[in-house]
Nucleic acid binder design. Structure first.
Lengths: 251, 251
DNA sequence: TAGTTGTGATAGTAATACTACTATGATTGA
DNA sequence: TCAATCATAGTAGTATTACTATCACAACTA
């Protein structure tokens, strides 16, 4: 069976020179994913990458302004890749509830049997995203980079999810938060299951199939609970008790 | 009105010498919070901090092994501080639903009228936590640092929340994930509201009171939906459709 | 054949993230 | 009251990062 070759459109502002157009560019993408996975983002450097691919630092700077931009490129690739996989899976699916299930599955799994990228290893990239993906936008320069459109692919992905939520519950009050929460919670719980198991209900297990099934149930429950709960009356927010009682402790 | 002076217990493995025992130590805590807020974690350095407080790099290294450990210290302080605030607020509260509301409020707000820390500015620290708090555990050395107990305070905080969830719904299947999701979603949505508004349903607003009220409703809805949904039958996970249909695209 | 493209080689700068060692005034406790 | 130690400052040095700049050169392209 021939696989579909994926060529994703990535925001040109993330790179100086389009890496997919040359051999060295492709080598940069392929090996940066492997090296970031091995070393972690902070210990990864252009020098180490240059040594690994028998090139030079200055050559790498011809493709990406710095390692952060390269990281942003990879994240954009991941978000586009995930959106594409969702699109492919949703072809011919009419039922919105089935759509949501397929979306959740896609957020948990990184691989896709029928589609394939020539140089980026999606499974390794997914590991990176789970471990340090949020670093792409959690820093001082978000606003500038947001103006460059660095997070458009992420927003598009979330929009796609929130549209399905709205299909399921036309008047849902919080589709955007629910969408981004599903994406973030999927990654967080995969990470927690591996490193901080007390923060998740995924059973401590080695088998990734079982972990993914657990997580599917968790996310599905979270999403469908919110979708089915059409309680539209706002809740009393301000606390009535306490405040004065705390003063007792002031003695 | 006299405020309660807070002195929190922080894991001694995070520091070389306990910073609260000396003047320089307190200055380090106070000013690192301010400087990290100003510069962001990556641009913050011991050199810059030393200059700011008219000390030297080598002096700072007597308190913290490196800036990451100092960051971990601050995060632990925040988690302990949040746990303490929850404890104080829940005194004399019997109703579990009221407890959950107070917890959500505490996760959103950083300040507390009745309690106060002498050197760490909790509002600035909260801003740091919202922007880059997850960096504390999203890196290559989590497992080692987890063994040192660097994340115990975070786990304790989540445990506290999940206990209330269990109080509300004795047989809830996913209290741990729901607890950590509430904490993470609170921070994420505060961040999104400021920088990536399309990822949240918080209305674009300048008034922090309105933002916090919006977020309260969102988190309350998310939590109570899941708690009230006692649908215990597992959902069919594997997709039945597609798979073969995708092959049509292989031409 | 001249020009462009892609890459490599070399060198240099400023900053980071430390480590090591010395010096000094203040406190304390035997 | 004298020695010890504590808290801090100062000075110097190393390895690495995160770049920037310049020149050389081979391959391909018009």
């Amino acid at each position: 069976m021939k696989k579909i070759e994926i060529n994703l459109h990535i925001n040109p502002k993330t790179y100086v020179k389009n890496p997919v157009t040359t051999d060295l560019g492709k080598k940069i993408l392929e090996n940066s994913v492997i090296l970031i996975d091995e070393l972690g983002l902070e210990d990864f450097s252009f020098r180490k990458l240059a040594i690994r691919i028998s090139s030079t630092e200055s050559s790498l700077y011809r493709y990406f302004e710095n390692k952060h931009y390269l990281f942003i490129y990879l994240l954009n690739w991941y978000w586009e890749w995930t959106s594409t996989r969702i699109d492919l899976k949703l072809i011919n699916v009419k039922e919105p509830e089935e759509k949501l299930k397929l979306i959740i599955r896609t957020l948990i799994d990184s691989s896709m049997k029928n589609a394939d990228s020539p140089f980026i290893d999606e499974e390794i990239l997914h590991r990176i995203v789970v471990r340090e993906g949020t670093k792409a936008y959690h820093h001082k320069l978000v606003d500038t980079e947001n103006e460059y459109g660095f997070f458009l692919s992420y927003k598009t992905l979330c929009k796609k999810i929130s549209d399905v939520i709205i299909e399921l519950s036309h008047n849902h009050q919080y589709p955007k938060t629910l969408a981004s929460t599903l994406v973030e919670t999927a990654n967080n719980n995969l990470y927690f299951a591996k490193h901080l198991p007390r923060l998740t209900d995924i059973k401590e297990e080695k088998d990734p199939e079982v972990i993914n099934d657990d997580l599917f149930q968790i996310l599905h429950h979270l999403a469908m609970s919110s979708i089915k709960n059409r309680n539209e009356n706002q809740v009393e927010n301000k606390p009535k008790v306490n405040g004065n009682k705390i003063e007792l402790l002031n003695l």
